[in-house]
Amino acid sequence: MTVQVPHGGRVLFIGDSITDAGRDRSCDDDLGSGYAMMAGAWFTARHPGHRATFVNRGISGDRVRDLRARWETDCLAHAPQVVSVLIGVNDTWRRYDQGDPTSVDGFARDYRHILEATRRLGARLILIEPFLIPLDDAKRAWRKDLGPKVDAVRRLAAEFDATLVAVDELFQAADVDGRVWTNDGVHLTPFGHALLAQQWLRAVTPTA
């Protein structure tokens, strides 16, 4: 199922550092240097007359609870027609680097809250799976925590009739050294961002 981007519509990307990608927060139109910028650029290059606009509201370090806290100002206030969400890896990461875990139930509860608010707005939803590209045994151990959160995102996508961008298995299945895609198992190289942008673009289509 693809999401139709209306003519002149606004697409909002939101999430953590993978979406943030170093964007200049003093410039509302800056999309950073990652998949959000690449996806917006390629969509516009393919459909220059469609006049869609793209907004990036990723913030490095965010967990789903942080998205919930800023959802009104950083998402709903922009009145987007399409909302693309990528969140979850920090909900796992904080368990291992700060001893501050996020339960699967808590993760799903906060995620459901933002999706319910977005559905009331009438926006179409794109949910990108959180993912991990483990380069060592320490990161591989994170799968125990992240896997159930990936499953929760898949269930929420079905529940809210959202388009799921499945990338967790995509990065794992790619028959190459994981260092092509990432330097630390989480943050993407330009090649990793390009792969994610390609997968995202398969999920959208312009309206006639």
Rank of each mutant, 00 (worst) to 15 (best):
L164H: 02
P148I: 07
R179K: 13
V165R: 04
W181A: 06
T118R: 01
H187G: 05
A138R: 15
T182H: 02
R120I: 07
A194P: 03
T102I: 04
A158T: 09
Y111K: 03
K139C: 04
A138G: 13
F171A: 10
N183R: 15
F107I: 01
A138K: 14
R70G: 09
H187Q: 08
H187D: 04
F191G: 07
R155D: 10
R65W: 10
L164N: 08
H187N: 09
L115R: 00
V176P: 07
G88A: 02
D136L: 07
A194V: 03
D74T: 02
D100K: 13
T118E: 01
D184H: 03
L67A: 03
H187L: 04
G99C: 09
H193A: 05
H78Y: 11
A79I: 02
R68D: 12
L146W: 06
R155V: 11
D175G: 12
D177M: 06
G106W: 12
A157Q: 03
R94N: 12
H193K: 07
R112Y: 03
L188R: 06
V104T: 15
A141L: 15
V89M: 15
L195H: 04
T118V: 06
D110Q: 11
V180G: 02
A77T: 00
A152G: 02
D175T: 06
T189Q: 05
P80D: 02
G106Y: 11
R143Q: 11
R140F: 03
A117D: 01
K144H: 08
A141W: 08
T118I: 02
F191V: 15
P190L: 06
A141I: 07
G192S: 09
G192R: 03
L196T: 04
P101I: 06
W93Y: 09
L170P: 00
F171W: 01
I128V: 14
W71Y: 09
D137E: 15
D151G: 09
R154N: 02
G178D: 01
H113C: 12
H113K: 07
D100Y: 08
L195F: 08
L76Q: 00
P134G: 10
V82Y: 00
R119I: 10
T163N: 03
F191M: 13
D110M: 07
T163I: 04
D110F: 11
P190E: 06
T189K: 08
G178T: 01
D168N: 13
R143C: 10
R154H: 05
P148Q: 08
